[in-house]
Amino acid sequence: MPAGLQLWTRLRADPAGVIGLVIVVFFLLLALAGWFGLIGQDWAAAEGGRWEPAGPQFWFGTNVLGQDVFERAVYSVRTAFEIGLVVAVLSTMLGAVLGALAGWHSHSWVDGSVLWLKGVLDSIPFYLFVAAVAYALQGKPWAMHLAMVATFWTGTGRLVRAEVMKIKTREFVLAARAIGLPDTLIVLRHVLPNTAHILLVQASLAFVAAIKTEVILSFLGLGVQHGVSWGLMLAESTQEVLAGHFNNFLAASLMLFALLMGFNLLVDALQDAFDPKQAVAQ
């Protein structure tokens, strides 16, 4: 059976994983639709009256300016995916590379430098650091991305470093050298693939953390500058909830909850499905 099909068979056997997959695919389609301009394009237009209740015209009602909350919530999916994917991919890659370098050359100056950098970054309170970066790069839309990538890699780096130090003493690495592979190729072909389980988990954690962080930062006014996100909607809702208007609050928090929940379920199932040793058990 080809590996992809095998993975699918194993994933399908896990109901929680299937639910997660359905939710994530649904949100992915929303994000893509937002990307290609099919939905959510009128998020800025004020078409209705102030705080209209949910109904056939405005599914989730309207906000204080009369903007359609559904449009805004749906368009925010695109914002969330964008930042989640960018930060997850880049921070995991950076962590893998720096962690592998440090682990392969453990107890050398390379290792020392990476650990020092990690120590420095970890010792700065996260939101303070992001705020500093955001202020330093005022108006740059990727300031938030940069701040997250710069700090999120440290956890991955530490785990990969430890794993590489463990793997490099294994005989198959010695065997790879004995069949004449150069160091770079040994790391790329035999060491890093053996850390794939760590990378998968770390990337999914980074995806979830990035979306959450974006919401918090936007809520604080440090995140999304031009556009809309669940964080901005929640920031708006702080005023509204007290006045008894729950449109923004419910739409943003429920969608955030559903996406993060679905993603966690999917990754949990994927992790099991990816593990070749589980295949034997079944």
Partner: peptide, 8 residues
């Protein structure tokens, strides 16, 4: 046991 890479 360990002379072959477990992931390939």
């Amino acid at each position: 046991l360990t002379a072959l890479d477990p992931v390939f």
